[in-house]
Design a protein around this nucleic acid. Structure first.
Lengths: 336, 336
DNA sequence: GACTGGCACTCGCTCTGTCAGAGTGCCAAA
DNA sequence: TTTGGCACTCTGACAGAGCGAGTGCCAGTC
């Protein structure tokens, strides 16, 4: 593709992102030193429109980029902006002082929302690569039992089960369970627990069976991992169309399931991934873009975080922020 | 106050709530069988306006209620509407199948948002009246220790501390801690733990001290309890003014601290409390009303839930819904 | 004394028409 | 291939007119 045409597209995208208004040929040559006249730019624009990179809201208005235009911009034109020192400092100080996993993730989501001025989403690290650290059984009454699973990601899951039991039985089962599961990655732990199921001493078989079933359920419910959302006030910067645009987005953001699939499909690497408008499989989010990245320490705790915003967002800075936050949180998790 | 004037006020409130438009004298006598002419109603309206219960958006428009008007309506005129059978069924089925406290509260908030068509807020039951059910110590490495506190409300708190320790020491400390704290209400537990601090065997004094300090911190951090928010999409029904109205509300809703104070100040009983517009201490929420109620089982687990919506809301149904949900969740917690 | 019908008056809302400005497409010339 | 010029189109802002809803007040009635 013609070099100047790419330059024109870049200029249109940056101008439109900053002004939110269709950009015309004259304004373009004024703000960017393209070295040609408006008429020439108009020819290029006509070509770009022909090829589907830009469009006119109505005849005799300026041009705005299409999803395809943004895509080209992101792929070939956007140089990732380095963060400002203030932002780097903010990221640095924001997380220090976090006390537990919940706290870390809540701080992260606020941080990300603040630096990007967008809605931020952070997924809880999944169990799948996490080790089982401890299994605890707590008697609530002689009939009811609390089963607790602690993983190396710092996550704690609990479940109440109705099983008749005594304290002695509990002690035996607990040590068997811990012996089998602790130190194992969750899939292995599940296998070992299944094996244990067959070898249970008769005296504690019924209570052991109940506990193992519950644990397997908890290990398997991995996919039902949760997400934290923040920065919703930034949705008001979306512009005008409310009932039409913002409501569906708000609805999607309340659906944990949708968000999880969204993040899951977006990326599983630590490379920043962008989904623009219609590229998005969810109807409610087709007027938005998602910028996401994996984060975490190699295999230990791995998850995805990102931001959702209008397609007309500043991709270079947003991508830079997402990348920076993902990396920093990853490092933070590894240390803490 | 004149009986008919009250009736006129009631009619204005109900009409305005359903139509969202200023209501005039003629429409009023048409929709409600007041048995008098528009002119008479106009006289009453003038009086009501004089007394500050209603106001005109501009000359020669209909009247809308003021905060003071809503207050009178809620206090003296609103008969709490019974719930529809469908709503009762919804409440009934929505909570069944919840697996843990998190799950219960998330379901509750969705339920409340759905039946009231408003933003719902549910506070986590506070520790203050909850019993300590179990204390668990898990070794993360020889230097790092995970302290876990489980209460009778089903809540789990965790904290990582840096203490050098061995497994044997851990076992001893664990049983001492549990012996001291389990079954105690949190304030008592704190006292007992403080006592234990003085009596610690020398061999485990440093590690015991660290654990107790952490536990006391966790027991004391009661006030930092959390809230769950849901039904944000309903904010779009707020109407037009967005940058002015919705943004501040969204911001307030992201501030856990504000919400906690809000709910805390609103009520501590199971009577439904209403705060209308300016009655609200928080500037961001002065164009909204809060309808809240305490919930829970007597002393065991107690907290507040409620909804936030425009001052022009249907108070009778909203109050009925909040009351019903609060009662039902309370019962559910007591059973589960 | 309370209620009512009538009347003049006030405003906001909506519709219309006009106008300036921005931007385009096309064409002929450099 | 680029450029300057020109005619054309469309939006958005603005002003003025007419409509309608609603009010306040007053004189008359029960």
């Amino acid at each position: 593709m013609d070099d100047r045409k790419l330059q024109v597209l870049r200029a249109i995208v940056t101008d439109y992102v900053s002004s939110q208004e269709p950009v015309g040929s004259k304004a373009l040559v004024e703000r960017h030193s393209l070295g040609v006249s408006p008429a020439t730019v108009r020819n290029d624009m006509a070509a770009l429109e022909e090829e589907g990179y830009i469009t006119q809201p109505h005849t005799s208005a300026g041009r705005i980029p299409t999803d395809k235009g943004y895509r080209l911009f992101v792929d070939r034109l956007g140089s990732v902006k380095p963060l400002s020192p203030a932002e780097q400092r903010a990221i640095h100080t924001f997380l220090s002082g976090a006390v537990d996993l919940d706290d870390i993730l809540h701080r992260t989501v606020r941080l990300l929302a603040q630096v990007t001025q967008q809605v931020a989403i952070v997924q809880y690290p999944t169990l799948s690569h996490a080790e089982v650290r401890h299994v605890e059984l707590v008697s609530l009454s002689s009939q009811r039992l609390l089963v607790i699973l602690i993983t190396s990601t710092g996550r704690i899951e609990q479940r109440v089960v109705e099983i008749e039991h005594t304290d002695d039985e509990l002690t035996r089962v607990r040590s068997l369970l811990n012996a089998a599961a602790v130190g194992q990655v969750s899939s292995q732990a599940a296998a070992r627990l299944g094996q244990l199921l067959a070898e249970l001493p008769v005296a504690i078989s019924s209570i052991g069976r109940g506990c193992i079933a519950t644990l397997l359920d908890m290990l398997g419910s991995d996919a039902s991992s949760r997400v934290v959302v923040g920065g919703m006030p930034n949705l008001t910067r979306f512009g005008d169309e409310f009932e039409t645009t913002v409501r569906p987005v708000l609805e999607a953001l309340e659906e944990q399931v949708v968000l999880l699939k969204l993040l899951g499909e977006a990326t599983s690497t630590d490379i920043v991934t962008v989904r623009i408008g219609r590229e998005n499989p969810y109807a409610e989010l087709q007027s938005t873009s998602l910028v996401a990245s994996g984060y975490g320490t190699a295999l230990d705790s791995w998850a995805t975080l990102g931001v959702v915003g209008p397609t007309r967002m500043d991709y270079p800075s947003t991508m830079a922020s997402v990348r920076a936050v993902a990396r920093y949180v990853g490092r933070f998790l590894a240390e803490g």
